[in-house]
Design a protein around this nucleic acid. Structure first.
Lengths: 226, 226
DNA sequence: CCATTTTTATAAAATCTTTATACATTTTGT
DNA sequence: ACAAAATGTATAAAGATTTTATAAAAATGG
């Protein structure tokens, strides 16, 4: 199944990874594993999962640092798994953006219930299949874009960019954010990519390219869909 | 304060209520108390709070039942507080719609952190802070400024300056402070920059440039937004 | 081979910095 | 008290710099 829920496990202990792997997979989650902070951040960035299980005691970097780096852009649930049960660590993690904190050893049934709880509240928010804005219709479920009821043919990248802009209608999305979301975090300096694709999108959906009414340039910052 | 965050405590133990009352109020939450299930459901329905702390061991009805009845309509966070630490109760509560489950006795710092975490994820998406001052609206999340509901096009520097002034409405911000905040510490002598940009902002948001009503000059000191 | 993505090049547009000038207010010297 | 000087402010406009739009060539991957 391609639309299975993906969970990224960042933990250096093989036993824990094995336990989580078996537990999660037998509950129909697709599991990805990272053995350290570097690998975790890389996998999360290149193919963002639906939820992250993060160990605080990683070999190469503090889990607190990983959490903060993730939260610079990652908005879905993060659950901390840690042997540390002192209040200070728990409060720090929760205030850094963790959604939950379980002390090892944890009970797998409780972990699964907490995962279900977080997935429930994070998924229910983004279910607007068809977004309409004047003459433009974007059907996120079908991945189809129409202009005046005529289907517009977009490439994958063009569609991803337009969908992201439409999902955040009215909001200014920075170059950094757009590049990281579409191409990945290592592309945040390639503003040229954006310009090329914005131009291509405008050619396809704007009536008058010299006076774009949908994709607005915010010079020095980014772009905005209205 | 009328826009304080309201938390409803449903618990029959007086000591717990007293502890929660003191802890929550000293963290600027407004607290309402219910001593049993019937009262809890009634208060929640008549004046829905922003978050509910629910004890599972209530005298008149099982907390699990209260939770299910609340979740028929109540969508904001519910945290369970219970002496029961067995997995069965925890899983049942979380699957019935609880957002978190703390075993009594709990640590107040951790409880507060978990409350902050839940309030963060439930409120940040629904409402973004729009600062309104008469005919001027500044939407910090969207990075959009409107005058009489018409979007005003501002450059990066203009926006940064206006946002800083608006965030400190009524307060006088010194030249030094403004220059350091917008241009950096090495520019604190470039008062001319400020004058140029204040003039440009006034041209865009004031009705009458010769009688500015929003951006006020404090001669020899700085500027002020009203 | 073809559709798409990435790279390159260049003109145009937008923005920032600097300079110049005018005006208003306060301070200084007599 | 008065004029001159000094200080602080407002604004326009020139120039320098940064950012953006666009076409088109080269590279990539099925």
């Amino acid at each position: 199944m391609s639309n299975a829920i993906e969970i990224l496990v960042i933990d250096d202990e093989p036993q824990i990874r094995k336990l989580l792997n078996i537990t999660l997979q037998s509950n129909d989650y697709k599991v990805k594993e990272a053995l350290n902070a570097r690998e975790g951040l890389s996998i999360a960035a290149n193919h963002p999962p639906d939820l992250i299980l993060l160990d605080l005691g990683l070999p190469d970097e503090s889990g607190h640092v990983v959490l903060e780096k993730l939260r610079e852009w990652y908005t879905k649930p993060i659950i901390i798994l840690s042997v540390q049960s002192n209040e200070e660590d728990i409060v720090k993690a929760l205030d850094s953006g963790a959604n939950d904190y379980l002390v090892k050893p944890f009970r797998t049934g409780e972990l699964l219930a907490r995962i279900r709880s977080l997935l429930r509240s994070s998924s229910s928010e983004s279910e607007n299949p068809i977004l309409t804005s004047n003459d433009i219709q974007v059907d996120l479920a079908m991945r189809v874009v129409k202009k005046n009821n005529v289907t517009v043919k977009l490439t994958v990248t063009e569609y991803n960019l337009l969908a992201l802009l439409v999902k955040n209608e009215g909001k200014v999305l920075t170059h950094q954010y757009l590049l990281r979301s579409i191409w990945g975090p290592s592309y945040i300096n390639q503003s040229q990519y954006l310009r090329v694709y914005i131009a291509q999108l405008r050619k396809k959906i704007e009536d008058n390219i010299n006076n774009p009414l949908h994709i607005i340039t915010e010079s020095g910052i980014g772009y905005r869909f209205v």
